[in-house]
Computed example of a mutant assay.
Amino acid sequence: MEQIEFYKKIEETYKQKEKALVGTITAIEGNNNFEFDPMGTKILLRQEDRLTYPANRLKLWQMIMDNIVNVDQLMDSKFPILKKVKIDSGIEVEVYFEPVLEEPRLLIFGAGHVAKPLAKVGKMVDFTVTVMDDRQDMVSRQRYPQADELVCADFDDYLRNLQIKENDYLVIVTRGHKHDYEVLKEVIDSQAKYIGMIGSSRKVKMLFRQLRDEGVGQELIDQVYAPIGVNIASETPAEIAMSIIAEIISIRREE
C-alpha cells in the first residue's frame, strides 16, 4: 500500500509541474544502526518542501541531504545523477537521483519510408512517439507497432489543435514540399526543443526564403535543423533515421 501511495505522490507532483527528484539508495558502506535496511529506500524530494514522502524515511534522508553540497543545483538537474554521500558515523551511501520529468515526445509529421525506422529507433531511446499523416493506410498499426500514437488527419487541422511543449522534438518528413512548408510554418515559433525538416539544401533554401517573404524572422529560421540529421553520408531510410536520432540525442543531452 505504501508503494502505491508513493507513486501517487509522484504523479501528483508531475501533474502540478513541481520541480522534484526521486532518490534511491543503491549502495551503503560502513556500519549503521538504522531501524530498517536502507538499501533500495526511496524518497520524493520536492523544490518547495524538500523531503516529503514516505514519512518514516525522513530522518535518514535528512542526514543525506544535509551532507550534499549545492542541493539547488541537484534539484535543477534534468538528467539522472549518481552521488556518493558521507553521513554520520563514517557511513557512505550511494544515491541515484532521478528528476520527475515529462517524457520527451517525438512527433513525426509524415509516415513514409524514413518515418518507419525513425519511430522504431525513437522508442528504443525512450521517446514517446507520435506519427501523423493524412493518408489512412500509411498510419496503420501494422506499419508502426511501436508508436504510442497514430494520427490520420489533415496537417492544418491537426496542427491547429496541437499543443506543442518544450520537451517535444518535431521531425518533418512529409511526402512533399507543400506539406513540409505547412507544418514548418505552423510550428516554427513553438517552444519545441527541436524542429528538423528533411530535404536537399536547394529545397531548404527555397522554403526558408518563402518563410522570410511571409514575415518569419531569421532568428526562428536559424533554429530549424535543415537539412536534417548528422552528416554521416546516409542514403537509405534507416541510415537517415539514425542520423536524425543522433542529432536529436545531441540536442537532448546538451544541457
Rank of each mutant, 00 (worst) to 15 (best):
M1Q: 05
E2V: 08
Q3V: 15
I4E: 13
I4P: 03
K9G: 03
K9L: 01
E12I: 05
T13F: 00
Y14H: 13
K15S: 10
K15T: 05
K17A: 11
K17S: 13
E18L: 15
E18S: 07
L21V: 09
I25A: 06
I25Q: 05
G30N: 10
N33Q: 14
N33K: 12
F36E: 13
P38G: 10
G40P: 04
G40W: 14
Q47K: 14
D49I: 08
R50F: 07
Y53S: 09
N56T: 10
L58F: 09
K59L: 13
W61E: 05
M63D: 14
M63Y: 05
M65Y: 15
N67W: 10
N67P: 01
N67V: 11
I68Y: 11
I68T: 07
V69I: 09
D72Y: 11
Q73A: 12
Q73S: 15
F79V: 08
P80Q: 08
I81R: 10
I81D: 00
K83F: 03
V85E: 06
V85D: 05
K86A: 13
D88E: 13
D88K: 14
D88S: 12
V93P: 03
V93T: 06
V95R: 07
Y96P: 03
L101K: 13
E103W: 03
E103F: 06
L107M: 15
L107H: 09
I108H: 01
I108G: 00
F109Y: 15
A111R: 02
A111I: 01
H113K: 10
H113M: 02
A115G: 15
K116S: 03
K116L: 14
G122E: 03
V125R: 04
D126Y: 08
T128C: 07
T128P: 02
T130P: 04
V131M: 08
M132E: 06
R135Y: 00
M138F: 15
V139E: 02
Q142W: 02
R143N: 09
P145R: 11
D154Q: 07
F155C: 00
Y158R: 08
Y158H: 15
N161K: 14
L162C: 06
K165S: 13
N167W: 07
I172A: 03
V173W: 00
K178P: 01
K178W: 00
H179S: 07
H179K: 12
H179T: 04
D180G: 02
D180T: 04
V183Y: 04
L184T: 04
E186G: 00
D189Q: 15
Y194W: 07
G199A: 12
G199M: 04
S201E: 08
R202Q: 12
K203M: 08
V204N: 04
V204D: 02
M206K: 11
R209H: 10
L211D: 00
L211Y: 06
E214M: 05
V216G: 01
Q218F: 00
E219I: 05
D222W: 05
Q223P: 02
A226E: 00
A226Q: 02
P227M: 07
G229R: 01
E235W: 05
P237E: 06
P237N: 08
A238Q: 15
A238P: 02
I240V: 15
A241Y: 04
M242C: 10
S243T: 12
I244T: 04
I244M: 06
A246D: 06
E247V: 02
E247N: 13
I248E: 00
I248Q: 01
I248K: 02
I249G: 04
S250D: 14
